[in-house]
Amino acid sequence: MAEQVALSRTQVCGILREELFQGDAFHQSDTHIFIIMGASGDLAKKKIYPTIWWLFRDGLLPENTFIVGYARSRLTVADIRKQSEPFFKATPEEKLKLEDFFARNSYVAGQYDDAASYQRLNSHMNALHLGSQANRLFYLALPPTVYEAVTKNIHESCMSQIGWNRIIVEKPFGRDLQSSDRLSNHISSLFREDQIYRIDHYLGKEMVQNLMVLRFANRIFGPIWNRDNIACVILTFKEPFGTEGRGGYFDEFGIIRDVMQNHLLQMLCLVAMEKPASTNSDDVRDEKVKVLKCISEVQANNVVLGQYVGNPDGEGEATKGYLDDPTVPRGSTTATFAAVVLYVENERWDGVPFILRCGKALNERKAEVRLQFHDVAGDIFHQQCKRNELVIRVQPNEAVYTKMMTKKPGMFFNPEESELDLTYGNRYKNVKLPDAYERLILDVFCGSQMHFVRSDELREAWRIFTPLLHQIELEKPKPIPYIYGSRGPTEADELMKRVGFQYEGTYKWVNP
Rank of each mutant, 00 (worst) to 15 (best):
N218T: 03
W225K: 00
N229S: 09
E239G: 04
A71S: 12
D176H: 05
G174F: 01
E63A: 09
A134P: 09
K46F: 03
G248N: 06
E206H: 07
H27R: 15
G163M: 06
V233F: 04
I35A: 08
H129C: 14
R219V: 12
G59R: 09
E18V: 06
R120F: 10
D113K: 11
D251M: 00
Y147Q: 02
F66K: 12
E252P: 08
A71Y: 00
T151D: 01
T51L: 02
I220T: 06
I168M: 10
S184G: 08
G204R: 04
H155P: 06
F221D: 00
Q195R: 05
E3F: 07
T145M: 07
T145Y: 06
A44I: 01
P144T: 00
L98E: 05
R166L: 01
G14V: 08
L43C: 04
L61N: 02
E148I: 11
A90I: 13
G41L: 01
A115F: 12
F237D: 04
L98I: 10
L140M: 15
D181S: 09
L142R: 03
G59P: 01
D24M: 09
F56N: 01
R227P: 04
V146H: 05
F173P: 02
F34N: 00
Q119A: 13
L140N: 05
C13W: 08
S189C: 10
L130T: 15
R198P: 01
A141D: 03
I36Y: 01
F56L: 04
F56K: 06
K205D: 00
R198G: 00
I256P: 00
T236G: 02
F216R: 04
A78P: 13
A39F: 05
C158N: 09
A44Y: 03
P62I: 03
S180K: 00
G14Q: 15
H32S: 10
H201V: 03
E99I: 08
S157E: 11
L7T: 09
V208G: 01
E244Q: 10
D79R: 09
R74W: 15
M37H: 07
L61Y: 02
I167F: 14
L235V: 10
H124R: 12
S132P: 13
T10P: 07
N226Q: 08
D30V: 09
S8F: 05
V68S: 01
M125L: 12
R57Q: 05
R104E: 01
V150M: 06
V213P: 09
I256D: 05
I220R: 01
G131F: 08
E193G: 00
G247N: 05
V146K: 11
V233H: 01
N135G: 08
F34E: 03
Y139N: 06
H186V: 12
F253R: 03
R74F: 15
N218D: 04
F253Q: 01
R57K: 14
V213F: 10
E148K: 11
H186D: 08
G248F: 06
P50V: 04
I230R: 01
G69E: 01
E3A: 08
R17W: 08
F191A: 01
D42L: 03
E156Y: 13
N226V: 05
N126D: 15
A44M: 01
E244C: 12
G110S: 06
F221Q: 05
I35Q: 04
K152V: 11
Q22A: 14
F237L: 09
R192S: 11
Y249W: 00
K45R: 15
N105W: 12
L177W: 06
M37R: 05
F102S: 01
I224R: 05
A127W: 11
A6T: 15
E193H: 03
R104L: 11
G110R: 01
I167S: 04
K82Q: 10
V77C: 13
F26D: 10
G247H: 07
A217D: 03
L137E: 01
R227C: 09
H27I: 14
Y118M: 07
L121P: 02
R120M: 13
Y49W: 10
Q83F: 12
W54E: 09
H124A: 14
F34S: 05
I255Q: 06
N64A: 07
L20C: 07
A231E: 11
N135F: 05
L96D: 13
I154C: 10
R120I: 14
I230D: 05
K45Y: 06
G242I: 03
R219N: 08
W164G: 08
Y107V: 07
H124L: 08
R57Y: 00
K47M: 04
L190K: 08
L211N: 00
E148C: 09
P86F: 07
G222W: 09
V150D: 04
T10I: 11
P62E: 08
I162N: 14
Y202W: 02
Y147F: 12
H124D: 09
A78N: 15
G254E: 01
S40H: 00
F56P: 04
K45A: 07
D114P: 06
L121K: 02
L130K: 10
S157Y: 13
D114R: 11
C158D: 05
F88A: 04
A39D: 06
F173V: 06
I230M: 07
C232R: 00
W225P: 02
I167D: 00
D24K: 11
G110K: 04
L61P: 00
I33N: 06
G41T: 03
A115Y: 12
A141T: 06
G254C: 04
P144C: 00
M125Q: 03
I255N: 00
L60T: 02
G41W: 04
Q161E: 13
F250S: 05
F191D: 03
A103H: 15
R81W: 10
